[in-house]
């Protein structure tokens, strides 16, 4: 990873200006030219280092629901269940973790009612229980990775 890419990733996870020439304003902060910043972003998107360059919306404030869901799946059934769960577009990410509850995914739905419906569908299709763990309080959202 080159200097420009590093500067973009470290500098633009925290925010991006909202003004007429935002790339110019951000580039000045990062010690880059506007053109270098735009080209660097294009590369990082093309090579899939970045999943997106844009907004992170507040799901609950949009009237939606966001939850963390855990399931306990026997190893032999894991891939089948993962495929079934991942087929729902509302499943945003899904990780295998080293615990009895070994499948953990984030569910984002437009309407709170739909969350319960999807959880019901997942349980019915997979035959396993889904433990819904919505956040009760958020203390910190500062996911920023340095490279």
């Amino acid at each position: 990873m080159n200097y420009t890419e590093r500067a973009i990733i470290n500098g633009l996870q925290g925010g991006f200006p909202v003004c007429e020439r935002p790339f110019l304003a951000a580039a000045e902060q990062l010690g880059l030219s506007e053109e270098t910043l735009i080209n660097g972003l294009r590369c990082l998107l093309d090579n899939e280092t970045l999943s997106r360059f844009g907004p992170m919306y507040h799901a609950e404030r949009l009237g939606g629901a966001l939850s963390l869901v855990a399931m306990e799946i026997p190893a032999a059934d894991f891939d089948r269940v993962a495929d079934q769960v991942n087929a729902f577009p509302e499943v945003a990410h899904n990780y295998a973790r080293d615990h009895a509850l070994n499948m953990w995914f984030v569910l984002a739905t437009e309407k709170p009612e739909r969350k319960d419906w999807i959880l019901g569908e997942i349980e019915r299709e997979t035959g396993y229980r889904a433990y819904d763990m919505p956040k009760l309080a958020e203390y910190f959202v500062g996911l920023r990775l340095e490279v």
Binding site: I8, I9, L12, Q13, G14, G15, F16, V18, L41, L44, E48, T49, L50, S51, R52, F53, G54, P55, M56, Y57, H58, R61, L62, V141, L145, V147
Partner: peptide, 17 residues
């Protein structure tokens, strides 16, 4: 208003090591 929590780059963290 917080409708946009954050504007910026969203990284694939596994790709960054």
């Amino acid at each position: 208003s917080g409708l946009i929590k954050r504007l910026g780059v969203i990284v694939r963290h596994r790709r960054l090591g």
